[in-house]
Design a protein around this nucleic acid. Structure first.
Length: 423
RNA sequence: GGAGAGUUGACCGAGCGGCCGAAGGUGACAGUCUUGAAAACUGUUGAGGCGUAACCCGCCUCCGCGGGUUCGAAUCCCGCACUCUCCGCCA
C-alpha cells in the first residue's frame, strides 16, 4: 500500500509510476475523490458521535421527566449516528480498496515498460564455447537423467505435469545448494528460519500476492489457507502488527521453505525438465530495514547473490527489471540471470526486490521514530533454489555427460569433484 | 472430534452497562537526593485517524477479530480466530 499522504501531496508522482508500470493512472484521481468523500463523511460522523456521547452523559445524570425527554432526543441521534457511521465506513472501505489497487511506486531509474524492457546492468563471466571445446551440448534433463538425478516421468505419474523427483545425486545436489546458501546467509548475519508454507488470507493479501498474480497461487478452500510461492510471505508476515526496534541495524532472516506455484499463465513455457515447476525449494533472504537504508540493503543482497553465483562458477548477467514487470510490492527488482547453454539464453536464478515501505504499510510493521512511529522498509532476495541445478548441470557438463562440481558444493556431496553418469 | 477456561496497554494485572483509553504494579525515560551508583521520592510513558499543510489544541476510533442488543458496551448476546486444560482419535 502506498502512502496516502504522499498521494495527496504529490499525485503526479503516483501517476508517473502508474504510467511506468503500464497501469491505470486515472485511479489516482479516483482515490483523491473517494478520499475527500471519506473525510467529509468521517467528520460528519465524528461530530454526531461527539454529540451523542455528551448527551449520553447527561442521560446518565438526569432524573424523571428530564431524563425521558433526553432519551427521546438521544434515540433520534442514535439513528443518525448509525447511518453516518455506515456512510463513513463505506467510504473508507472504498478508498482503501482503491489505494490497495495501486502498485508500489517504481524507484527513479527503473526502466519503464514491460517484461522485455529490462536494462542489462552488467554481465559477469563468459559462457563456455562448447563447439570450440568439442563438447556436444546436452540440456539439464538429459544430463540429469544420465546421472539418475531427475525423474520427470514418475513425477508426472504421481502428481502430474511440472512435478518431478530428485533422486540420488539430484537430491544431494539440491540439499547442497540450499545448505551452502543457508551457510552463506548465516555468515552474513541472517537468522536461519524454517517457515510455514500455508498462510492465512490476511498474510497473503498483506504481502501483495493476491493482486494481479492471484492465479499463480494455490488455495485450500476447506481450510482457507494459501500455499506460499516463497518464504518471503511467511517472513514478511512474521512481524505483522509489530513495532520493531531497528536501532541495532536491520532485522535479517534467511528462510528455507518449499515453494508452490500454479504456473497458470505459463502453459507451454519451459515444459521440459525442472526449469518451471509447481513445487521447489528456496532459501530466501529477507530484511526489515529503515526506509533510508533500503536501497543500500538491496545492493547488499545483490552482492551476496553475485558472490554465490561466482562461487558456483556460473556466468550471469544482472538486469534491472522494467516497471511493468515488477511485482505489486516491489519498487525495484534486480535479477541475476544465469546462462542456459541448451537454449542459448539467460534464465532467472536470483531476484532481489526492494519493497520500500509498501509491504510494511499493509502489514502494519513500524518502528519507533523521533516522534511517533513510521513504516519500515522490506527487502527480499533469493540465495539458493532448485532451479540452480539446471544451470549447474548445463554449464558444468563435460563431453562424456559427467558434471564438474564447484568446490563450494563439494563438502555437501561427499567431497566429489565430478558427478558421473550411471550406466 | 468432544468438554471447559481464557485473550485488557512494552510486560503483569484490576475492571460495576454511564468522564474507562482504562485502577494498581513492573519496566523504560526524566528530575530530586548522591562524589558516582543503588535505594527512596516526584513526574512522564500506547496506537490510528479527522479538524488542518504544520504547531498548539480539540474531537473520533481502538480492551483478540467481526456482528448484534442498548439512549449508552472493555462490561450483555451471537459467530470466528488463537492460547491453555481434560477426554477421544491418529502418530
Amino acid at each position: 500500500m502506498i502512502d496516502l499522504a504522499l498521494l495527496r501531496s504529490d499525485p503526479e508522482r503516483v501517476r508517473e509510476s502508474q504510467r511506468m508500470r503500464g497501469d491505470d493512472e486515472a485511479v489516482v484521481d479516483r482515490v483523491l475523490a473517494t478520499d475527500a468523500r471519506r473525510r467529509a463523511a468521517l467528520t460528519e460522523f465524528e461530530q454526531a458521535r461527539a454529540e451523542q456521547k455528551s448527551l449520553g452523559r447527561d442521560v446518565a445524570q438526569a432524573q424523571g421527566d428530564e431524563k425521558a425527554a433526553l432519551l427521546v432526543r438521544s434515540k433520534e441521534l442514535a439513528q443518525r449516528v448509525k447511518a453516518l457511521q455506515a456512510d463513513a465506513d463505506a467510504a473508507d472501505a472504498e478508498a482503501r480498496e482503491l489505494l490497495m489497487s495501486i502498485g508500489n511506486l517504481a524507484e527513479p531509474g527503473v526502466p519503464a515498460g514491460g517484461a522485455d524492457d529490462f536494462a542489462v546492468l552488467r554481465t559477469e563471466g563468459t559462457p563456455r564455447d562448447f563447439a570450440a571445446e568439442g563438447v556436444p551440448v546436452r540440456d539439464h534433463l538429459e544430463l540429469g537423467e544420465g546421472l539418475k538425478a531427475i525423474d520427470m516421468e514418475r513425477g508426472a505419474k504421481v502428481s502430474g505435469a511440472r512435478f518431478y523427483y530428485l533422486t540420488g545425486v539430484g537430491a544431494q545436489l539440491e540439499l547442497a545448494i540450499l545448505n551452502a546458501a543457508m551457510g552463506v546467509a548465516t555468515a552474513q548475519g541472517f537468522l536461519p528460519m524454517i517457515t510455514p508454507t500455508l498462510v492465512r488470507p490476511e498474510t497473503m493479501r498483506g504481502t501483495g500476492f493476491l493482486g494481479n498474480h492471484s492465479d499463480e497461487v494455490y488455495y485450500l478452500e476447506k481450510d482457507e489457507l494459501y500455499l506460499t510461492g516463497t518464504s518471503e510471505v511467511a517472513l514478511a508476515g512474521y512481524h505483522t502488527d509489530e513495532i520493531l526496534d531497528l536501532s541495532g541495524g536491520p532485522l535479517r532472516y534467511a528462510g528455507w521453505s518449499a515453494c508452490y506455484r500454479r504456473e497458470a499463465g505459463s502453459a507451454g513455457r519451459d515444459t521440459r525438465g525442472i526449469i518451471r515447476v509447481h513445487q521447489f525449494h528456496k532459501v530466501e533472504m529477507f530484511s526489515y530495514v529503515r526506509s533510508e537504508d533500503a536501497a543500500a540493503e538491496h545492493e547488499r543482497f545483490l552482492a551476496i547473490q553475485e558472490s554465490m553465483l561466482q562461487a558456483l562458477e556460473l556466468p550471469y548477467r544482472v538486469i534491472d527489471t522494467a516497471a511493468g514487470d515488477l511485482g505489486t510490492s516491489a519498487a525495484r527488482k534486480l535479477d541475476c540471470e544465469g546462462w542456459l547453454p541448451s537454449q542459448e539464453r539467460w534464465m532467472e536464478l536470483t531476484s532481489a526486490s526492494n519493497c520500500t515501505t509498501f509491504q510494511a504499510r499493509r502489514l502494519a510493521i513500524r518502528e519507533r521514530g523521533e516522534d511517533g512511529t513510521r513504516a519500515v522498509a522490506t527487502v527480499n532476495g533469493t540465495i539458493g533454489t532448485t532451479r540452480w541445478i539446471v544451470a549447474l548441470l548445463e554449464n558444468h557438463q563435460q563431453a562424456d555427460g559427467s558434471v564438474y562440481v564447484p568446490p563450494m558444493l563439494r563438502p555437501y556431496l561427499g567431497g566429489v569433484e565430478t558427478l558421473t553418469p550411471v550406466l
